[in-house]
């Protein structure tokens, strides 16, 4: 779907490949048309600019954010950096703990069975429902936001690491054993490479969770960060600023997710085929 379609993982041409350019062009033209229509409807007074700020208004709002900042003095770069820093800290914390713990649990069937219901439940807990609790425990500062993001990312990552380690083809391991590979060698050269694609998948989903949680986390006790910007703008009836903030967080979420996908293809060339398996 996202692949250019020249070759499928198996190297065979995909039926849907060649005719892709035309639909893309059509899609781009359609999007451009919608944007123009939006602008025109706004100029004609059909769409009220307060409810649906037109593209021209959004450009002005972006200009204002870039030079004067909103609230006064906090420029868009600051909002973006602060949001990314919060996500980054929570995300790295989550991934850093989840990988060793997940490997441990995935390699031990007793630990796996002991922890399964706990993990299942912890995953079901809505991350944002922890908001009041972390405020009471850690205040409204940075720590609360980072911990919320970490919580959301952690369980997604953990389940994927466990699954990656657990569902390795036993034939691979037996083959390595037949070749007299030491347990450490099996781990480093069989288990880890086979589990990495799943871990990467988890890392991507977890990042999406982080971008989702940050907006909720920034609703409290801060005026800095894209989530705070979106919410603050509303109280000043600046819907144009809200929408610019939404677009910014969408763009960054999308960009980073695509970047991770590219990274995965560069780092893990041996498992491109998993893309089709993971459906």
């Amino acid at each position: 779907m996202k692949r250019s379609g020249a070759t499928s993982p198996e190297g065979a041409p995909r039926s849907r490949g060649p005719a892709l350019a035309a639909p893309r062009l059509l899609g781009a033209a359609f999007v451009a048309g919608l944007v123009l229509l939006w602008q025109a409807a706004s100029l004609a007074g059909v769409l009220k600019p307060f409810y649906f700020p037109p593209p021209s208004r959004l450009a002005l709002a972006f200009w204002e954010l870039a030079w004067e900042g909103f609230p006064e003095g906090v420029r868009i770069g600051t909002h973006i950096l602060i949001t990314l820093a919060r996500i980054g800290q929570g995300y790295l914390l989550a991934v850093g703990v989840a990988i060793p713990l997940g490997i441990l649990i995935g390699r031990s069937s007793v630990l796996d069975r002991l922890s399964l219901p706990i993990i299942t439940f912890a995953r079901s807990v809505a991350t944002l429902s922890l908001l009041p609790l972390v405020i009471v425990w850690f205040g409204v500062g940075e720590l609360s936001k980072v911990l919320l993001i970490a919580y959301g990312c952690f369980w997604v990552m953990l389940t994927n690491v466990i699954a990656g380690v657990k569902y390795i083809d036993p034939l691979l391991i037996r083959a390595a054993q037949t070749l007299d590979t030491s347990p450490a060698g099996i781990f480093a050269r069989v288990v880890l490479p086979a589990a990495l694609p799943r871990m990467f998948a988890g890392a991507r989903v977890a990042l999406g969770v982080g971008f989702m949680v940050i907006v909720g986390a920034e609703m409290i006790g801060t005026i800095q960060g894209l989530g705070a910007l979106i919410m603050e703008a509303r109280t000043y009836y600046r819907t144009d600023i809200s929408v610019v903030g939404m677009v910014a967080i969408g763009l960054f979420g999308f960009g980073i997710s695509v970047g991770l996908e590219r990274l995965e293809r560069v780092l893990l060339p041996w498992h491109r085929g998993l893309e089709s398996v993971r459906r």
């Binding site: 971008f211 609703m219 989530g227 939404m246 969408g250 999308f254």
Partner: peptide
């Protein structure tokens, strides 16, 4: 890619 919460 725009998180649902950002629509609030």
């Amino acid at each position: 890619p725009i998180p649902p919460l950002a629509w609030i």
